[in-house]
Write a protein that binds this DNA or RNA. Structure first.
Lengths: 216, 216
DNA sequence: TGTAATGTTTACCAACCGGTCAAATTATCA
DNA sequence: TGATAATTTGACCGGTTGGTAAACATTACA
């Protein structure tokens, strides 16, 4: 009998795990490049190296596939922010947060583009995630930054916009990779731009957040 | 006789100008929200308030429409960078560049998203624009920044990554608007986030680019 | 006003879209 | 090994897609 995926309660087969893995990998490739509406199931099936009906045996709809992909990737994507440590040294915490985010942009650009596409196109499928878990996490870390500023360990600044600016500057190297390469003229080059970016961003943020003079 | 658009040599009719205007406006709305592949001609026609064949009378293909839109918008979009003045005061030039870019993110978010979508999805249609005019303009302004740094007017830094970071931080408020609002919890609010962002970014960049000590 | 060029609409098409179905194949395990 | 369940496939479906053909309406202008 053909059981609908949702109805399966037994533990997953080896084949199931392998195929679902291959499908999600292919889906990441295609969704991250074309967005949800622009991606086609045929295309994902081709990248995954299987027939469309076979793919739809594992994920019954395109949307189910997209949902599974988002949920799986979101956790990993937020890890760097979770590691942000209230007990640590402010400057080195911010520095290593920037470095981690930049490494993710370098090593997982498709994941970054997946979210970028999603948010850019209205984020209808992840709005709850944004307003729930994401907001909660940012609120928590913003409070930490605020406390640091109040204690005079870093310059007074809006912690939310600080986080936004770290997100945007680092993810820029994944999401706008084509533009960055075009401007730098490094089409065939390696990852030099990431090291340059790391140097620049650390300088900018560390320097920019240093306490200037004890005003008020 | 029905002349193909490309073959028309006479000056444009009043109707032509009006309709093409309406179409490009509608195309901006739809392309910026769904990307090229995700947008449909029917949708654009509906937003423009005309029938699909009527729309296709003015732009014979979806791609032609997209091209026309990109070319038209790109110029405006680069204006802030063009205004960047080598003769001016470095700090105030950078400050007002940030402000202008932020104003554009606030006032023309669709234009920003159009490019974001385009670049994100590989930029196949604007690769030449990026490697040509854009690169040339950035090279020029990077040289100016480099000269400022060499003269000790601002901190030594990689001018390309400085420009990237200004682009990314400011455009973030247009491209990732949904996320920004979700995190700030300002769904119904006005433009307060832009003023906060302006304050924060000016502080970050001005402070971050200030000459610290005369090393080397 | 007449008429030729321009503009608009209805009906339509082939290709592609997400998804289904039943038959065929393969894996599992008593 | 055999039977049962899991997997894979090719053929297919209704709806949507970008785009066309041709009849019809409107405008510009001599």
């Amino acid at each position: 009998m053909v059981l609908p995926r949702a109805a399966r309660t037994q533990r997953r087969t080896r084949i199931q795990e392998e195929k679902e893995e291959r499908i999600l990998e292919a889906a990441l490739e295609v969704f991250s490049l074309h967005g949800f509406r622009g991606a086609t199931v045929d295309q994902i099936a081709e990248v995954a190296g299987m027939s469309k009906p076979n793919l739809l045996y594992y994920f019954r709809t395109k949307e189910a596939m997209h949902r599974a992909l988002i949920t799986r990737v979101l956790d990993t994507w937020l890890d760097p922010l979770r590691e942000f440590d209230a007990a640590g040294n402010p400057v080195s915490e911010i520095r290593s947060y920037i470095r981690r985010k930049l490494e993710m942009a370098r090593d997982f650009p498709r994941e970054s583009r997946l979210f970028a596409n999603e948010v850019l196109q209205g984020a209808a499928n992840i709005e709850d995630e944004l307003k729930g878990p994401l907001k909660a996490l940012v609120d928590e870390k913003a409070a930490v930054i605020h406390a640091w500023a109040k204690a005079g360990k870093i310059a007074r600044c809006d912690p939310y916009h600080l986080i936004f600016s770290i997100w945007s500057t680092t993810q820029h190297y994944a999401d706008f990779d084509v533009q960055v390469r075009a401007v730098l003229g490094q089409e065939k080059a390696g990852d030099g731009r990431f090291e340059d970016a790391a140097r620049f961003l650390e300088q900018l943020f560390i320097n920019g957040l240093q306490v200037r003079d004890a005003a008020s």
